[in-house]
Amino acid sequence: MERQALIQALEAAFARLADARDAGHDVHHARRVRDNAMRIADREGGDRVVLLAAAYLHDLVSPPKDSPDRARASALSAEAAGPVLRELGLDEERVAGAQHAIHAHSFSAGVETKTIEARILQDADRLEALGAIGVARTFYTAGLMNSAMFDADDPFAASRPLDDRRYALDHFAAKLLKLPATMKTEAGRALAEERLGVMRAFLDAIAAELGVAAGW
Score class of each variant (00 low, 15 high):
Val49Asn: 07
Met145Ile: 07
Gln8Cys: 11
Gly24Leu: 01
Phe139Thr: 10
Phe139Asp: 10
Ala118Thr: 10
Arg48Phe: 01
Ala208Gln: 09
Gly97Trp: 04
Ala118Ile: 11
Ala207Phe: 06
Met149Gln: 04
Asp153Leu: 05
Ala129Arg: 13
Asp125Pro: 09
Gly134Ile: 10
Leu210Tyr: 01
Leu176Pro: 00
Asn146Glu: 15
Leu203Asn: 02
Arg195Gln: 11
Asp26Cys: 02
Ala187Gly: 14
Ala96Gly: 15
Ala96Thr: 06
Thr182Asn: 12
Arg70Gln: 08
Gly134Trp: 13
Phe172Lys: 00
Arg160Glu: 10
Pro64Ser: 10
Phe150Tyr: 15
Asp153His: 06
Leu90Thr: 00
Glu2Ile: 10
Arg160Met: 09
Leu76Trp: 02
Ala187Cys: 13
Ala23Gln: 12
Ala142Gly: 15
Val135Gln: 13
Arg34Asn: 05
Val95Leu: 02
Ala124Lys: 11
Ser106Gly: 12
Met183Asp: 12
Gly82Phe: 00
Glu194Ser: 11
Asp69Ser: 06
Ser77His: 01
Ala201Gln: 06
Glu11Ile: 00
Arg31Glu: 14
Tyr56Gly: 13
Tyr56Ile: 01
Asp125Thr: 09
Gly188Cys: 11
Ala142Asp: 12
Glu87Leu: 02
His100Trp: 02
Arg48Met: 11
Ser77Gln: 07
Ala23Leu: 09
Met183Ser: 15
Leu6His: 10
Val111Met: 01
Pro64Ala: 13
Ala157Leu: 06
Asp163Pro: 04
Pro63Met: 10
Gly82Ala: 13
Gln122Thr: 15
Gly24Met: 04
Gln99Thr: 00
Asp163Val: 06
Leu17Met: 01
Met38Ala: 15
Leu210Val: 01
Ala23Phe: 03
Gly110Ile: 07
Pro68Thr: 08
Asp91Ile: 03
